[in-house]
Nucleic acid binder design. Sequence first.
DNA 1: GCACTGCGCTTGCAACTGCTAGCGCCGGCA
DNA 2: TGCCGGCGCTAGCAGTTGCAAGCGCAGTGC
Lengths: 138, 138
Amino acid sequence: MDSKRSVADQAVDAVADLGRDIGDYIREQRSTAQISLRQLAKLAGVSNPYLSQIERGLRKPSAEILQQIAKGLRISAEALYVQAGILEQRVGGAVVDAVLADTELTERQKQVLLDVYETFRRENAAKRPADATEDTEE
Amino acid sequence: MDSKRSVADQAVDAVADLGRDIGDYIREQRSTAQISLRQLAKLAGVSNPYLSQIERGLRKPSAEILQQIAKGLRISAEALYVQAGILEQRVGGAVVDAVLADTELTERQKQVLLDVYETFRRENAAKRPADATEDTEE
DNA sequence: GCACTGCGCTTGCAACTGCTAGCGCCGGCA
DNA sequence: TGCCGGCGCTAGCAGTTGCAAGCGCAGTGC
């Protein structure tokens, strides 16, 4: 059945690669939040040298550290995990599905929500056509 | 929005402890699936001694390993992360979860969407106060 | 000029992860 | 009976994470 261990390979392979992406993402979120590396390090409860290395892609942080950082940045841990390649990306379908499946909303409200959602996505797509993983907000 | 920091605290505090829980969970899933430790190890692409130690709580696996194991068990990685205490339990329902997990939205946009969502829910709750509290998740 | 504070980064080091090799045990088979 | 394969586990080892200590640099007050 596994004539090739593509899954494992990809994971192992891409993680090393993605180490940089996650670092970029964190650094970007940090500068957006306008806090220094040391501040975030303290907020997140990690050492500042280590955070520095993470941001520059020299180290691959464990999930706990990622969670701490997410907390420090006040962003969802899931977003970071996806960036780190340790959680599958849930594409737009997930949001649409969830909204449609929600029993507390009227059909009209669902329509409004999905409309806003689509607008946001289009906005972002226009801003950064190829790379949708980076967050250039504001 | 983090009115439930008990989870966070637990995560940070009890990670060492939770190593055992996640192991139990994995072992349980494995026996449910009726596969041997070695089989799962092969499926997940990890060594069988290591998986053994994980299941007995002697080692705390990294997120990649957890993901591999989740794949091998054919369960969602998120379930495992929650068990491991590195991901907060989904609370606000599927919509909130899906929005937060969406990587194409900026954090600001997520806030807006969730805000609208909350507004709708409150509106509806005001209209029909009693019977709206059903579990929409399976 | 000169201390002082905060910034990000480099350097070793302890602790951990995750592996290979190998152990004892049990059931099937000639 | 011996032998073979699979089971879970122990022992010992590279390689990594995550840290404290310390570097140089820029801005500020005296």
